[in-house]
């Protein structure tokens, strides 16, 4: 690799890290669409179209396509808070030893508004132990 290529890679990495940092900074502490009926209805449609195949129509983890390496999350009990929710949706989840993220990284293809709308819908399904605010430290 020549000097220009190294410099270019370093610059790209810097831009990426800055972008990731800026992205994290941009996520509000609380879901701006919480309780917004129109956004919740739209988020329900998005959830059913995009998420339900793994997480199930009831969001309880009972989706047909959820058994890659383990069972998918029961989103009614999601307790990691709004910002962590956004992070997981954007960046996905990878289990050790797997060739692929079992939860895909949707960050490049679903916009923030859609992610927030889906979150607002999921909040309406919350059962005991769920936390969509600050979230438990885990």
């Amino acid at each position: 690799m020549n000097f220009k290529a190294v410099l270019s890679s370093a610059l790209m990495l810097g831009v990426f890290l800055l972008g990731a940092h800026a992205n994290a900074q941009d996520v509000p502490e609380a879901n701006p669409y919480s309780g917004d009926e129109a956004k919740i209805r739209s988020g329900k449609s998005d959830y059913r179209a995009i998420c339900s195949l793994c997480h199930g129509g009831r969001a309880d983890g009972a989706g047909e396509r959820g058994t890659g390496a383990s069972t998918p999350a029961d989103l009614r009990k999601f307790n990691k808070g709004f910002r962590r929710y956004v992070d997981i949706v954007k960046n996905g989840v990878q289990k050790p030893g797997r060739d692929i993220k079992d939860m895909p990284a949707w960050g490049g293809v679903i916009d923030d508004e859609t992610i927030y709308k889906i979150g607002a819908f999921l909040e309406t399904l919350a059962i005991e132990g769920a936390d969509w605010k600050e979230g438990k430290k885990n």
């Binding site: 195949l53 793994c54 396509r65 959820g66 058994t67 890659g68 390496a69 797997r98 060739d99 692929i100 993220k101 079992d102 939860m103 895909p104």
Partner: peptide, 9 residues
Amino acid sequence: GYNVPFFTG
């Protein structure tokens, strides 16, 4: 891709 985590392996 889409559904691909489920199929992989």
